[in-house]
Computed example of a mutant assay.
Amino acid sequence: MQRDMDLCRKILQVIEGGNDRPHTIGVTDLGEDEAFNVTQETLNYHVKLLIQADLVNSSGTLVRGIPVVRGLTWKGHDFVESSRNQGLWEKAKQTVKEKTGGLTLELLSAALASVAKKALGIDD
Rank of each mutant, 00 (worst) to 15 (best):
L103V: 05
T24D: 08
Q40I: 04
W89F: 04
K99V: 12
D4M: 13
K118T: 14
T73V: 04
T73Q: 02
L105V: 07
A111Q: 01
G121M: 06
T95D: 13
V63G: 08
D33N: 05
G18L: 00
T73S: 03
N57W: 10
S59Q: 10
G76F: 02
L7Q: 01
Q2D: 14
Q13P: 04
W89E: 03
V69P: 02
E41P: 00
L62K: 09
T95V: 13
S58D: 03
V47G: 03
F79Y: 14
A111R: 01
L7Y: 07
S114Y: 08
E32K: 08
A116V: 05
L49H: 05
H77K: 09
D33T: 04
L30W: 02
T28D: 14
D29N: 06
G26Q: 12
L50I: 09
I122L: 12
E98T: 02
E41H: 12
W74R: 10
D33C: 02
Q2S: 13
R70E: 11
K118F: 14
L120W: 06
E41Y: 15
T104D: 10
T100C: 14
I122F: 04
G101C: 14
E98W: 09
R64G: 00
N37H: 08
V38G: 12
L12F: 05
V56R: 01
C8D: 11
V27F: 01
E106D: 11
E16C: 04
E106P: 00
G18C: 00
L49M: 14
D20I: 08
S59N: 09
G71R: 00
P22S: 06
T104V: 08
E98F: 12
K10I: 15
P22E: 09
A53F: 13
I11A: 05
E16W: 11
E41F: 14
A35M: 13
S109Y: 08
L107V: 04
D78N: 14
D20S: 06
R84Y: 03
D78S: 13
T24G: 15
I51D: 04
T39G: 13
L30V: 06
A110D: 10
L43D: 02
Q2K: 05
A111L: 11
K97T: 13
V96K: 00
G121S: 02
E98R: 12
L55K: 05
G76K: 00
T61C: 04
A110G: 12
Q13C: 15
N44T: 10
L12V: 04
S114Q: 11
F36Q: 09
V14F: 05
L7T: 08
R3G: 13
Q13N: 13
K48F: 10
V63M: 09
T42M: 03
H46R: 05
Q94F: 13
N37R: 13
G71P: 01
G102N: 13
R70F: 01
K48T: 15
T100P: 07
L12C: 03
Q86H: 11
C8E: 14
R84K: 15
